[in-house]
């Protein structure tokens, strides 16, 4: 399964997703510049991404705590998500995300 990620410089990376891993973990291990300060606890909003090309609507809705935590993210858009809360699975194969500005 693939994750297409656009970094802050606008460069596109195609990463191999892993079932059950979070998109944040794949981005981090793929060397993208993503702080993920709290390590995936939905507690810092530094793994903020935009979910592109219709993928936002295909994802399960964000939890109450993720919606709350997005209040601490910068430059939030209607397609904003915290990548530590998106779990890779067959339904996310090919998902396209853009790392939000710092």
């Amino acid at each position: 399964m693939k994750i297409v990620a656009i970094d802050r410089q606008g460069k596109e990376h195609t990463l191999e997703g892993r079932d059950g891993w979070t998109v944040m973990e794949i981005l981090r291990d793929g060397g993208l510049d993503i702080a993920a300060e709290c390590g995936g606890a939905c507690a810092c909003a530094t793994c903020h991404v935009y979910v592109n090309d219709g993928w936002f609507e295909k994802l399960p809705a964000p939890s109450e705590s993720e919606i709350d935590m997005l209040d601490m993210a910068l430059a939030v858009e209607p397609n904003s998500r915290l990548s530590c809360q998106i779990v890779c699975s067959e339904t996310t194969d090919g998902i396209k995300v853009t790392v939000a500005p710092e």
């Binding site: 919606i67 709350d68 209040d71």
Partner: peptide, 8 residues
Amino acid sequence: VHHRDGFR
């Protein structure tokens, strides 16, 4: 100003 009409 806030990006949504809701607050944490």
